[in-house]
Amino acid sequence: MRRQPIQRLPSINTEIALQRLNGNKALLATLAGFFLEDAPQLLEQLHEGLRSNSLQQVTQSAHRLRGLASSFEAGPVMQLTAEIESLRGSDGPSRINELATELDAEFARLIETLQSLTT
């Protein structure tokens, strides 16, 4: 089944995220700060894997990104990283690059949303 078009989904779901954090808004803001510091490096590692044709590096970076994004119930980034994680060598470079491009756009949207949480 084709996933829901991600542009229709909000970048994060604050309500669910806060519920999981026992309503602790300060904790959510701190986690957003951690994400802003750590996640760009992971995205860079994913691209490095693409450039060096290391599928293992690509899927591992996607896995870790998904873990970080899940704290905010960041649906679009979680969907895309999950799809990248499930990629096999037979999927071909065009599919991988297509997903990576989508991920870059959603990642930028997520960063913007999280920046507003930390201010």
Partner: peptide, 15 residues
Amino acid sequence: DDRSLRYMVQVSLES
């Protein structure tokens, strides 16, 4: 190895 996880668990359990 995920510092976000370590931090949130620490805050939660210490509470």
